[in-house]
Design a binder for these strands. Structure first.
Length: 171
DNA sequence: GCAGTGATACAA
DNA sequence: TGTATCACTGCG
């Protein structure tokens, strides 16, 4: 049984959503009727303005605005001029939180995921609970995960760098 | 080990 | 206006 994840899934604290997001299916309707599904294996949490690794630590800007919305929105941005990274906004309105999708089955790396899904700036603010081209499903798959420090955030300082905010599925 | 690539944030 | 920086990848 497959169920599309709705607002009630995303509108919870990021730590709960993140734990349950591992093993869920990321679904992409690439073009007419061609639907692809990818199981999420690797994610990172970015939590609030006080998290120096989180883009919202710079406050509310055009780029971070969507993180302040309620859960279930897509936050995408271009990094290094080449890669669109996919993030999922969680929590309630006014609390900036987002989960970066670092990897899915057979696609290891956030930039590769974005390329495979053919993301672009038009996905900024897309609502995963009503979109016809990208959404999430629960197919009942169960798994466990390990916690690690986040990748490539040296600029955030030791306290935030060492937080175990990366969850990786154990095969 | 490091080049490539362009939006963004912030200084001036 | 200019410019430093960046939730990365794919070459060597």
């Amino acid at each position: 049984m497959k169920e599309k994840l709705g607002k009630e899934f995303f509108n919870r604290d990021i730590k709960i959503v993140a734990e349950e997001l591992i093993g869920k299916l990321l679904v992409r309707n690439q073009f007419n009727g061609k639907i692809e599904k990818y199981r999420i294996t690797d994610i990172e949490m970015y939590i609030g303005e006080e998290d120096l690794a989180c883009h919202a630590s710079k406050g509310r800007t055009a780029r971070t605005e969507v993180m302040y919305a309620d859960g279930g929105m897509v936050y995408v941005y271009l990094i290094y001029g080449m890669y669109w990274l996919l993030n999922i906004v969680t929590g309630c309105k006014g609390k900036p939180q987002a989960i970066l999708i670092r990897g899915v089955v057979n696609i290891d790396g956030p930039g590769r995921v974005g390329r495979k899904l053919k993301l672009d700036k038009s996905f900024y603010g897309e609502d995963l609970t009503s979109s016809q081209r990208i959404w999430l499903e629960d197919d009942g798959f169960e798994c466990t995960f390990a916690r690690h420090p986040r990748i490539n955030i040296d600029y955030a300082g030791d306290i935030w760098k060492n937080k175990l905010y990366r969850f990786v599925m154990i095969e």
